[in-house]
Amino acid sequence: MQEILDLLQNDARLTAEEIATMTKKSVAEVKDTIAKLEKDGIILKYAAIVNQEKLPDESDHVRAIIEIQVTPEREHGFDALAERIYRFPQVKSLHLMSGGYDLQVIIEGKTLKEVAFFVSEKLATLSGVKSTKTHFVLKTYKENDIVYVDSKKDGREGVTA
């Protein structure tokens, strides 16, 4: 199962037939495994990874990491507030953290102003939120194991012994 998952995480366009060939498993077994991974919510979806910085209108895209300190609620802990936050489509990631703050929110928007406005209007005003700290992302070097700045060139000699 792990090998199939590793292959798909690296290239979601591999067909069940190709995966079966590469892992010496039967096509049926591969299909069943993938179906189970999907059913169990381990594979959530198959999506393209986009390097936003390469888009022609890259200036229209900003990303910020927001640190939020909250007062946990009786009964619900952090979960209820977290849900109120992640339902906003601007929120791309949300993590509950140990350490100096509680929730880490990653937000994407068109302009600095739009993001800042969202934080001050929507996040900071939520009941339970004690403080927010906004850090704008200037450049992405690596994310989810993918290096964004590399030039992928094969430097090997064409024919060697």
């Binding site: 090997r156 000699e157 064409g158 060697t160």
Partner: peptide, 11 residues
């Protein structure tokens, strides 16, 4: 324009 399967080393 050539795909080389002629190398003798890791990629």
């Amino acid at each position: 324009d050539i795909i080389s399967l002629g190398v003798g080393e890791p990629d």
